[in-house]
């Protein structure tokens, strides 16, 4: 295969991303920020989530890692026990760090 079209596309996407990040698109909110603010504004699917300030790191880790692949699920869908198992499962599947595992689990338990 001639990888040129693919490489050009990838380079273009990466360049677009980098340009955006370095030229003012920082004003735009990240997924995590939107999720935390969206908790109040309803702009995200799981708008019922109320994020206490102390749980911001957990909410950020939750949004950044989960939304990279799929929509975030409502913390109230599962019990604490179930979240312990599911977050363990996702730690293995998505290569979460131990700290991310702890923060996300704390957040989900506080929010459900």
């Amino acid at each position: 295969m001639k990888p040129l079209p693919l490489l050009l596309t990838l380079i273009g996407v990466t360049a677009l991303t980098a340009a955006c990040l370095s030229s003012g698109c920082q004003k735009d909110r990240t997924i995590a920020e939107m999720t935390m603010e969206g908790a109040a504004t309803g702009s995200q699917p799981s708008a019922s989530v109320v994020v206490p300030p102390m749980r911001k790191d957990g909410a950020r880790a939750w949004a950044q890692n989960c939304m990279r692949c799929h929509n975030i699920r409502d913390p109230q869908e599962r019990s604490d026990r179930e979240w312990e198992t599911i977050v363990h499962h996702m730690r293995v599947r998505a290569n979460l760090t131990a700290e991310e595992h702890r923060l996300i689990l704390e957040f989900l338990k506080a929010a459900n």
Partner: peptide, 23 residues
């Protein structure tokens, strides 16, 4: 592989880019 996801005010929404190649 590449994945990028972010919400932009300018386009009033969320952009999700994914690209992969295999040889």
């Amino acid at each position: 592989d590449l994945s990028y996801a972010r919400e932009f005010e300018a386009i009033k929404g969320r952009l999700d880019l994914r690209a992969e190649a295999i040889w």
